[in-house]
Design a protein around this nucleic acid. Structure first.
Lengths: 341, 341
DNA sequence: TTGTAAGCGTTATCAC
DNA sequence: GTGATAACGCTTACAA
């Protein structure tokens, strides 16, 4: 067989060349890297020296083919351009890197079919998969989880390890905060209905409001969790007569801020807005009071959970819950006379 | 030898099992997928049917080991959390996916050493590399380019294919725009000195200002291209007595906006701000007038260039230049009486 | 402690 | 048109 050498340009040296140069067998070279404890120290030193001189690095792909350990995981997100994900991706990639793992990134573009085909493709070449805010139905997620270890982020499926961002703490604090400021009627500007995060946030809000005397919650449906959609929601929001709103996420809340400004309603003196995620909240105008989530930590935790599964740790049904807290900035204030709840 | 099977959970079928079930040789199964034109149509159909029944998919890693074609590229960025990169990553991943390639993502965390080690790791398992806004010195970039095909984004090294975002068009338009509004003295709030993008923007600004009568450019050094740094720059910016500023990027410009607001300077009536990139410009308050770059397109183009190189297209010294244009929003206005240039 | 050789799943060469 | 078989680069029983 004579094909294009795998390491085409530069022709990276193989284990065989190192073996010949060091006058040992290929097995010995292999062991000098993967099981040095089995070799005489001098042998290890000698082989390593020769390898370095030749610029040899073990070929991870070939090793993977032999051992089944590809040292690679996949991370699939619905939309890397959504500010929620970059910190998560960063945390995940960093944790993987620290463990010597490479990360395949997949962007499903919010599309279940696309996500499905990305996963099908990855299955053959990764050891495990982190699925963040999956758009797949439970059955399909489980199907993939049968073929490869899967860790979910913000999706709660029994039997599949998952890291969940629990909005309860932050939402409770937000409702307390708004109540303290004198708000009585509060709106939730909703997220995408099938989203786990949306379900959780809505439920947490309902409970928080129900637990406090004299508060009322109304829901305003946003078309999509985008800035533009937030802007567009403002008339409907104002029509409800509330004096404060909690947005599904920061981006939506930022749109609310812009729409309110356009409508001539000053924030926070005449209307209060709370965001979620703390992704862009620090840089809005005014800076958003928001339910802060540890997004990067979620990415990190998901990867560590996955590595745990791969290392046979019995975390089959792990459920790692990250809590949230309220960060008070400048988009919330005392209820005004004109719009008191 | 009896090790953990490569496709551990679920045990994906191999080419051998399909061959046996279909009563043909492994070679025939292989050809049914990679060179169906060499087989009788009925054979192809039969093999494919059996494969489907068994749930067989060719193992990309094994194929890669045999052919040297891993169907995988690497994309390395300095900081995925910087809003400039997510659209680029998205464009790149999409283009790669369309060509059947997987994307390894690396985040160098703005650190050259880290970037170096990421690249060392990727070299053995990818066909080529896209290096966006590399923090590596030219020598090191070239060293990597010797081992694997590399395409650069926003870095201009002769002999290495690159896609460049040329700020000239947008900057010229921005200077015209500001001049038309009556501004005479304009500040450039600078980016990181070693950055190619910064060098280009500064040079384009200098030229644009020099080409027009009665304009003057001053430079204000930002510590880093961040929101906070933009806020912190405002006193120095105001001390220069200019009436308008162009920020290195949108994030920095957004900080300027916030700092100006905090200083009680209304934008755009008393001060004008222009950003760069058009990453977050549409959602600032007020919405930023900005030099819009086709970030996603840059990612797409880089990948296609790389795939071209891999397909032996002779683009060794390709230099793909994307131009920019000015998007006028609400952060620029006529110079005020009090701060006229 | 080290070497031999089989095998990971695929493709390419060469027969038939 | 299809089948043997060696090879891709590496790891790992098993022997020595």
């Amino acid at each position: 067989m004579s094909r294009v050498p795998a390491q085409a340009p530069g022709g990276a040296p193989t284990i065989r060349e190192v073996a010949e140069a060091a006058r040992v067998s290929r097995a010995t070279v292999s062991r000098a890297f993967s099981r040095p404890d089995l070799l005489r120290p001098e042998t290890v030193a000698h082989v390593r020296a020769v390898a370095t001189r030749l610029g040899y690095t073990p070929n991870i792909v070939a090793r993977g083919l032999s051992t089944g350990r590809y040292a690679t995981i996949a991370l699939v997100v619905p939309d890397i351009a959504n500010p929620f994900f970059p910190p998560l991706v960063r945390g995940a990639q960093r944790a993987a890197d620290a463990a010597g793992y490479g990360v395949f990134l997949g962007d499903s573009d919010e599309d279940a079919e696309r996500e499905d085909s990305l996963l099908a493709r990855f299955t053959g070449q990764v050891e495990g998969i982190v699925l963040a805010s999956s758009r797949l139905d439970a059955a399909r997620v489980r199907r993939h989880a049968e073929r490869r270890p899967v860790v979910l982020v913000n999706r709660d499926l029994e039997g599949i390890p998952r890291v969940l961002i629990d909005p309860t703490g932050g939402i409770n604090a937000a409702v307390d905060h708004l109540a303290d400021l004198g708000h009585r009627r509060i709106a939730y500007v909703s997220g995408p209905h099938p989203s786990w995060a949306h379900q959780q946030r809505r439920r947490a809000l309902r409970r928080a409001v129900a637990a406090r005397q004299g508060l009322e919650l109304v829901t305003v449906a946003a078309r999509r969790p985008t800035y533009d959609s937030g802007v567009a929601c403002v008339p409907a929001l104002l029509a409800t007569g509330v004096s404060a709103a909690v947005g599904f996420d920061d981006v939506l809340a930022q749109g609310l801020l812009a729409g309110l400004a356009a409508a001539g309603i000053p924030v926070p003196t005449h209307f209060s807005v709370v965001g979620c995620d703390d992704g862009v909240a620090a840089t809005t105008a005014p800076p958003l009071t928001t339910v802060s989530a540890q997004t990067g930590e979620a990415g990190r935790a998901a990867v560590e959970l996955l590595l745990g599964v791969l290392g046979n740790a019995d975390v089959r049904d792990a459920r790692y819950v990250l809590d949230t807290h309220l960060v008070i900035r400048s988009s919330t204030g005392a209820v005004s006379a004109s719009r008191g709840g």
